[in-house]
Design a protein around this nucleic acid. Structure first.
Length: 212
DNA sequence: CCGCCGATCTTT
DNA sequence: AAGATCGGCGGG
């Protein structure tokens, strides 16, 4: 990968983002994994984003989860091994990406809601022509996927390093000391569960819209 | 900045 | 018929 970069990040590219996270990182409940995903780095080819906002979903025990009513064609990946990426089509038009957690057969996962550019800024901009500013490049789960080029062909991809297109890396940023948490966005079921976490004050965090 | 609304397709 | 959404448009 030839890389020379703008100001968004270090100059050495994806290898500077550190090794992929081991499967053991993902093999825990989504409520435990979710806040620890903040400041980790999702690397896709020549593009990379630092995760700044996430939401946990808890399968069969969570009325808002796609897996609440059991396996379907769409949610099959959620029931797979921890460390896989579950990608689904949202509102017919967009894609959203989740990190599968827990153990095989238990459909717990974490939705990646927003990220900050760390690498490949020109490619991120090219993939998101409607973004008016760089803070909008991955500000929202659909935008995050569009910025990295993640579509349904990435459903089931392994984030721990065996997939040539994508991995989730340590990145080198510590788990942020200042987190905030609140209700999940666009979810009407189980609205009392405050399972969304974000980095306090980060401008790349999405704006919560009311569910319509 | 904020609120409304249509696009488009999977699942119920 | 209802969504784990986004962008364009109108108003303040």
């Amino acid at each position: 990968m030839s890389r020379r970069s703008g100001s968004a990040a270090g100059s050495t590219g994806g290898s500077a983002c550190g090794p992929a996270l081991p499967r053991s990182f993902f093999a825990r409940d989504s409520l435990e994994v979710a806040p620890e995903l903040l400041n980790k780095v999702l690397v896709a080819g020549e593009r990379a984003l630092r995760i700044v906002e996430v939401e946990a979903y808890r399968g069969q025990e969570d009325p808002a989860s796609h897996a609440y009513r059991g396996p379907t064609r769409r949610n099959a990946t959620m029931f797979g091994r921890p460390g896989l990426l579950y990608v689904y089509r949202s509102y017919g038009l967009h894609f959203c990406a989740n990190v599968v957690c827990g153990t095989e057969g238990v459909a717990v996962a974490v939705l990646l809601r927003a990220g900050a550019p760390v690498w490949g800024l020109p490619a991120l901009r090219a993939a998101r022509p409607t973004a008016r500013t760089d803070t909008d490049l991955a500000r929202g789960p659909g935008r995050l996927c569009q910025a990295l080029g993640i579509d349904l062909s990435y459903d089931g991809a392994d984030l721990t390093g065996s997939d040539g297109r994508l991995r989730l890396a340590e990145g080198g940023w510590p788990v942020p000391s200042r987190l905030e948490r609140g209700p999940r966005v666009g979810v009407s079921a189980a609205a009392d569960r405050h399972w969304r976490w974000w980095i306090a004050g980060d401008p790349h965090v999405s704006r919560a819209r009311p569910a319509r």
